[in-house]
C-alpha cells in the first residue's frame, strides 16, 4: 500500500515513509525505515546524513521507484512525469557506449538532439566525449555521470555519495563544478553523504537520520550563503552542528 504520485503544481519533494523492512535470510524481517518524514523545498540543496547502514541508500531507491515495497507516500517535485537525475555511488556508465552516447541515451524525447557542448565544457569533458568509460579515471567517470544527470534538466537531482573514494583534491574540484553548474540552473537536490564537511560546503539544509530503524532526528539549516562559507565559517558551522547533534560524526 504505497503511493508514488507526482503532483503538478507543488515543486517540493515530500517523503513520508511509515515503514520499510527487508526480509532477513534467516526468516523474520528487519525494519530499516520507520516514520521517516521530510521534505525538500523547490531548488533547495538538502543533504541526508546518518550512521552507516541506517537506510539512506534505501530511501533513495524508494524515491527513485527502484523499490516499491514500502508503506507510505512519496511526492516527487515537478509536473507530469518528473525527471530525476541520479548520480549513483559508482558512475554506472555503460562501458560499451562512449561518454557522449551515455549522456544522450538518458535524454528524454523532448531534449533529443540538444546541444551538450556547454555542459561538457562546464564539466571539463569537452575532449572526452568520444572516450569509452573504461578509458576514464574515476574522477572523469564521475563527471560523466554528473553530466548525464544534469543533461536531462532534472526536476530533482539525487546524489548518492557522488564524491566518495576520490582523492580530496579531485573531490573538491568536483564539488565546485557541481555548485557552478547547479547555480546556473538550480533544481531540487537531495544528496546522501557521510562527509559532514562536504555537506556544510554544499547544502542549504542537512537532514540528520537516526540509526536503524531510521527516522529524522532533526534538520540543520545553513543560512550563510555558499560563497561566504570560507574555512573559518565552515568550522563555526561544524561546531554549532556538533552542539546540536553531539552524537553525529
Amino acid at each position: 500500500m504505497n503511493t508514488l504520485q507526482p503532483v503538478g503544481a507543488d515543486a517540493r519533494l515530500e517523503i513520508e515513509i511509515r515503514r520499510k523492512s527487508f526480509e532477513a535470510s534467516r526468516g523474520g524481517s528487519i525494519d530499516v525505515l520507520h516514520d521517516l518524514d521530510f521534505a525538500v523545498e523547490q531548488n533547495e540543496f538538502a543533504c541526508l546524513i546518518g550512521p552507516s547502514g541506517c537506510g539512506k541508500t534505501t530511501t533513495l531507491r524508494l524515491l527513485l521507484g527502484l523499490d516499491r515495497d514500502f508503506e507510505g507516500r512519496i511526492k516527487l517535485p515537478g509536473a507530469g512525469e518528473p525527471r530525476i537525475g541520479m548520480v549513483f555511488q559508482e558512475p554506472v556508465l555503460l562501458p560499451w557506449r562512449t561518454v557522449e552516447e551515455n549522456v544522450r541515451l538518458a535524454l528524454p524525447k523532448a531534449l533529443h538532439g540538444r546541444s551538450l557542448d556547454h555542459l561538457f565544457d562546464a564539466l571539463g569533458l569537452g575532449k572526452m566525449r568520444a572516450f569509452y568509460p573504461g578509458e576514464l579515471s574515476l574522477g572523469l567517470a564521475r563527471r560523466a555521470a554528473l553530466a548525464r544527470a544534469l543533461a536531462i534538466e532534472p526536476d530533482l537531482l539525487v546524489l548518492d555519495e557522488p564524491f566518495v573514494s576520490l582523492d580530496e583534491a579531485t573531490a573538491q574540484q568536483l564539488r565546485h563544478l557541481l555548485l557552478q553548474v547547479w547555480s546556473e540552473r538550480p533544481t531540487t537536490v537531495l544528496m546522501v553523504t557521510h562527509n559532514l564537511q562536504e555537506a556544510i560546503m554544499l547544502a542549504d539544509r542537512i537532514i540528520v537520520l537516526s540509526p536503524r530503524p531510521s527516522h529524522v532526528v532533526g534538520s540543520f539549516l545553513i543560512r550563510v550563503p555558499r560563497q561566504s562559507r570560507n574555512a573559518q565559517v565552515r568550522s563555526d558551522i561544524l561546531r554549532s552542528f556538533h552542539e546540536r547533534f553531539p552524537t553525529q560524526l
Binding site: L64, I84, M86, F88, E90, L94, L105, R148, I152
Partner: peptide
C-alpha cells in the same frame, strides 16, 4: 543490476534497454 536500475531511473524504452543495456 546497476545498469538495469540506471536504465529505469533514466526511463529507457524497451528497445533501448534491449539494445544498449541487455544485449551488450
Amino acid at each position: 543490476l546497476r545498469y538495469a536500475d540506471m536504465a529505469k531511473v533514466y526511463r529507457f524504452g524497451a528497445f533501448a534497454r534491449l539494445r544498449h543495456v541487455l544485449l551488450p
